[in-house]
């Protein structure tokens, strides 16, 4: 697993995308998969930035390729518990006028991922997302 930390700021997104691209290129898998990882990383990272109460330290993102499973793990240190998977599901069939704000990012992660796991231990909030990638 390759890990790097990023400042708690939306301004860190460009560096996160670069980290993902570097990792995907190194694994030799389809570069298009990087866009799925970008969405997962952005949605979970920005959630931690917005809702990770008490968080002052940088957020860690780790990536792992264990054929055929691609894993991305985000860890927010010393924060209150916040499990984004508890967000009420979005009903994609609802008319646009009735769509409420929020929840769409996690909905996208759910759509892209094969498995999502949340863990909270020692005030560290960790979410791990895996996706099976066909080679």
């Amino acid at each position: 697993m390759v890990a790097r930390t990023f400042p708690r700021s939306f301004g860190a997104l460009e560096a996160i995308y670069a980290f993902i691209r570097e990792f995907v290129a190194g694994c030799g898998i389809d570069p298009e998969i990087a866009y799925d990882l970008d969405v997962i990383a952005e949605e979970l990272f920005t959630n931690m930035v917005k809702y990770g109460r008490g968080g002052r330290r940088e957020i860690e993102i780790a990536l792992e390729w264990n054929v055929p499973i691609l894993a991305i793990r985000l860890r927010d240190f010393d924060v209150e518990r916040f499990d984004p998977m508890q967000t009420p599901p979005v009903d994609p069939s609802r008319p646009i006028a009735e769509r409420r704000a929020g929840g769409l990012g996690i909905h996208l992660v759910r759509q892209i991922a094969d498995r999502i796991h949340y863990d909270y231990q020692g005030r560290d909030s960790t979410i791990t997302v895996t996706k099976v990638v066909s080679s």
Binding site: Y35, D38, A97, L108
Partner: peptide, 19 residues
């Protein structure tokens, strides 16, 4: 090249205002 929920949110808002 890329859009996330934040970008979609802006487009939904624009769509609603125009409609």
């Amino acid at each position: 090249d890329y859009i996330s929920s934040a970008g979609i949110g802006i487009l939904i808002e624009l769509y609603k205002r125009l409609q």
